[in-house]
Nucleic acid binder design. Structure first.
Length: 312
RNA sequence: CGCGGGGUAGAGCAGAUGGCAGCUCGCCAGGCCCAUAACCUGGAGGCCGUGGGUUCAAGUCCCACCCCCGCAA
């Protein structure tokens, strides 16, 4: 008899975990809960969440509750519980807070996959936070959900190195994949009582907030290293940018540079040309080279290409 | 019909008041040099997004359409 699971998830981070559960004969994904379709993109087309697309492909029933904290929602999930005897909920990047009375429904509790080594980087932007903080390694955590955010007992963790040039998007995809692999193993061990859930050391907890595009505005007073890490971390979401000559310039790729010679003292945050390189002075008096950028209304281009057509 | 920017040489950009298209980089050839991503000389390369219209004459004015992108979500 496979373990019966209801999967809660929405974003691209969720899909590898859902896929792992589907592919593993030891589990049966009885239903999938995901956020309602959202208007997306320049023309606001109504778009299905990635998790919904995957679920439909395997003919798994999909539930999209407008609100979780309603008697109707509770009733629906309660019915599913009675009808199928669900063993556990698995929640991966669902995007909504689930009330306690629902969390109490499944027989063996609620399991969560988180994209960091808890207790570090609790919260919504854990992947970006790891790179932005300059961490050299991170990982994924499979844990039991409790009332507080990313606070529950740990079932399993897997670590990985963050490479020098890795972007948030690349790391996101890797962690999502790792999460799926770790999830199925940890879940079986947990069901078979082979692991003892370990409480987190809450004194070491750090938190990261939900990111918006505003968070990607570059503060040139920070150090060159901090800024480079931020650019890497926030690529592709939420992206990093600053205002230049009344236009918005997105920075897609940058690197710290060592300059032996002294350039004419520029202001912090001002673009500067050195040969065919596009430089900016940061708060610690060090330069970064902008390798790839995207002016408002234009396609992405290299710093050198930008210089070919723009006087600085 | 959410707001806005843009489609001109391979790339990035200029082209007030309409008159036979220019800049930077790249590319090709040659030169200089121990050497070079540096420098010098010369050269190739453009139905100016598409279709109409106004005009003696349109990249430049008018209309329609296609495509790309930023914001917003």
């Amino acid at each position: 008899m496979p373990y019966k699971i209801i999967f809660f998830g929405t974003s691209e981070f969720s899909t590898p975990s859902l896929q792992a559960l589907i592919d593993d004969p030891r589990f049966e994904v009885t239903a999938v809960v995901t956020k309602p379709d959202q208007p997306v993109g320049r023309h606001q087309f109504l778009t299905k969440p990635p998790v919904k697309i995957l679920a439909e492909k395997f003919n798994i029933p999909v539930y999209q509750f407008q609100k979780i904290k309603t008697p109707d929602t509770y009733q629906t999930l309660s019915d599913l519980q009675q009808r199928h005897g669900i063993d556990a909920y698995v929640i991966v990047s669902y995007g909504k807070i689930i009330p306690q009375n629902i969390l109490d429904l499944p027989k063996r509790g609620v399991i969560n996959v988180h994209g960091s080594l808890l207790p570090k980087h609790r919260g919504a932007s854990c992947v970006q936070a790891a790179i932005a903080s300059g961490d050299r390694q991170t990982g994924v955590t499979v844990m039991l959900l409790d009332a507080e955010m990313d606070h529950g007992d740990i079932l399993a963790q897997a670590e990985t190195e963050i490479s020098e040039a890795e972007t948030g998007g690349q790391l996101h995809d890797r962690l999502a994949q790792m999460g799926g692999e770790l999830l199925t193993r940890a879940l079986v061990d947990y069901f078979e009582n082979k692991i003892t859930p370990q409480p987190q050391d809450h004194a070491l907890a750090t938190y990261c907030k939900m990111l918006t595009r505003e968070d990607g505005k570059i503060d040139w007073n920070k150090s060159a290293l901090e800024i480079c890490n931020l650019i890497r971390a926030y690529n592709p979401w939420p992206g990093t940018w600053f205002e230049w000559q009344g236009k918005r310039l997105k920075i897609l790729k940058a690197a710290p540079v060592d300059l032996s010679k002294n350039l004419q003292a520029p202001n912090i945050g001002q673009l500067l040309q050195d040969r065919n390189r596009l430089l900016v002075l940061c708060g610690d008096q060090k330069f970064i080279e902008i390798l790839e950028l995207q002016p408002e209304g234009k396609k992405p281009m290299s710093g050198q290409t930008y210089l070919a057509g723009h006087k600085i």
